[in-house]
Amino acid sequence: MTTLAATIIHISIERDWHDVYAFMATPENMPLWASGLSSGLTRDGDEWIAPGPLGNARVRFAPDNAFGVVDHLVTLENGLKVQNALRVVPNGDGAEVMFTLLRQADMSDEQFAGDGEWVAKDLAALKSILESENGRTHHG
């Protein structure tokens, strides 16, 4: 088995880590900040279906836990499985959110860098939502 190149993308959020975890571990909230799932998630038993440019992806989330683990396994329609390791850990009175981005075998340097920028943008959106009043976005 080959070890893939990896990079860890992280952001600090000024909100209690339990609140951050609770928000992130609720699949219905993911489309609010995870742009790859912006078209929404539909529950299907233990999995969620996310429509996307490559067809419907199936997403299986880690069960609720006390460790801040929000991992999710994405299975694309072509059968490719992508493990997304996502963690929330205490950082003082706030939280640190870390996403481990693995470089898939067929990815160019540019694609890998682009994916990293995409994840960073999503984490910035998450921070914005969770640091706003009551964790709700303001419209208008």
Results as ranks from 00 to 15, higher is better:
residue 114 G to L: 01
residue 84 N to A: 01
residue 24 M to R: 02
residue 8 I to F: 12
residue 113 A to D: 12
residue 51 P to G: 14
residue 86 L to R: 02
residue 44 D to Q: 13
residue 17 W to Q: 08
residue 20 V to S: 05
residue 94 G to F: 11
residue 3 T to A: 14
residue 122 D to I: 09
residue 21 Y to R: 03
residue 132 S to C: 05
residue 114 G to N: 06
residue 110 E to N: 07
residue 48 W to A: 02
residue 59 V to H: 04
residue 23 F to Y: 15
residue 136 R to G: 03
residue 124 A to C: 09
residue 120 A to N: 12
residue 16 D to L: 04
residue 19 D to Y: 12
residue 137 T to Y: 05
residue 113 A to C: 03
residue 79 G to Y: 01
residue 76 L to F: 15
residue 93 D to C: 10
residue 123 L to G: 03
residue 90 P to W: 05
residue 138 H to L: 13
residue 136 R to K: 09
residue 78 N to C: 03
residue 128 S to T: 14
residue 43 R to C: 10
residue 100 T to K: 04
residue 112 F to P: 02
residue 117 E to G: 09
residue 81 K to Y: 02
residue 118 W to H: 14
residue 77 E to M: 11
residue 14 E to G: 06
residue 79 G to W: 01
residue 12 S to N: 14
residue 26 T to Q: 11
residue 57 A to G: 06
residue 112 F to H: 01
residue 41 L to Q: 05
residue 41 L to N: 03
residue 54 L to F: 03
residue 110 E to C: 00
residue 103 R to M: 06
residue 31 P to D: 06
residue 134 N to K: 13
residue 6 A to T: 15
residue 2 T to E: 07
residue 135 G to N: 05
residue 16 D to I: 00
residue 5 A to K: 12
residue 41 L to Y: 05
residue 83 Q to D: 11
residue 11 I to M: 12
residue 39 S to K: 14
residue 10 H to L: 13
residue 60 R to T: 10
residue 49 I to C: 06
residue 58 R to E: 09
residue 126 L to G: 07
residue 126 L to I: 08
residue 49 I to F: 07
residue 132 S to G: 13
residue 10 H to Q: 15
residue 4 L to N: 05
residue 117 E to D: 11
residue 109 D to L: 02
residue 69 V to Y: 02
residue 50 A to N: 13
residue 8 I to N: 15
residue 135 G to K: 04
residue 20 V to R: 03
residue 33 W to V: 02
residue 44 D to F: 09
residue 111 Q to W: 00
residue 122 D to L: 06
residue 120 A to W: 08
residue 138 H to M: 10
residue 107 M to S: 13
residue 9 I to A: 10
residue 15 R to H: 05
residue 137 T to V: 10
residue 100 T to A: 04
residue 17 W to D: 07
residue 16 D to E: 14
residue 131 E to P: 03
residue 58 R to V: 08
residue 59 V to R: 07
residue 103 R to K: 14
residue 105 A to N: 04
residue 121 K to F: 12
residue 102 L to G: 08
residue 1 M to N: 08
residue 80 L to E: 08
residue 128 S to C: 08
residue 112 F to T: 00
residue 112 F to S: 00
residue 68 G to N: 12
residue 108 S to H: 07
residue 13 I to C: 13
residue 9 I to W: 10
residue 52 G to H: 03
residue 138 H to E: 12
residue 51 P to C: 15
residue 2 T to A: 04
residue 86 L to E: 01
residue 104 Q to F: 03
residue 86 L to C: 01
residue 85 A to V: 15
residue 55 G to H: 09
residue 33 W to Y: 11
residue 27 P to Q: 00
residue 13 I to P: 08
residue 80 L to W: 02
residue 71 D to E: 12
residue 39 S to I: 02
residue 4 L to F: 06
residue 88 V to H: 01
residue 109 D to Q: 07
residue 48 W to F: 13
residue 83 Q to F: 11
residue 46 D to E: 14
residue 38 S to M: 11
residue 133 E to Q: 14
residue 117 E to I: 02
residue 52 G to M: 06
residue 129 I to M: 09
residue 85 A to C: 11
residue 116 G to V: 04
residue 89 V to I: 14
residue 139 H to V: 12
residue 15 R to F: 07
residue 109 D to W: 02
residue 135 G to W: 07
residue 110 E to H: 04
residue 26 T to W: 03
residue 122 D to Y: 06
residue 41 L to H: 01
residue 127 K to F: 11
residue 66 A to F: 01
residue 126 L to A: 04
residue 36 G to E: 09
residue 138 H to P: 02
residue 70 V to Y: 00
residue 16 D to M: 03
residue 25 A to G: 10
residue 98 M to S: 14
residue 126 L to P: 04
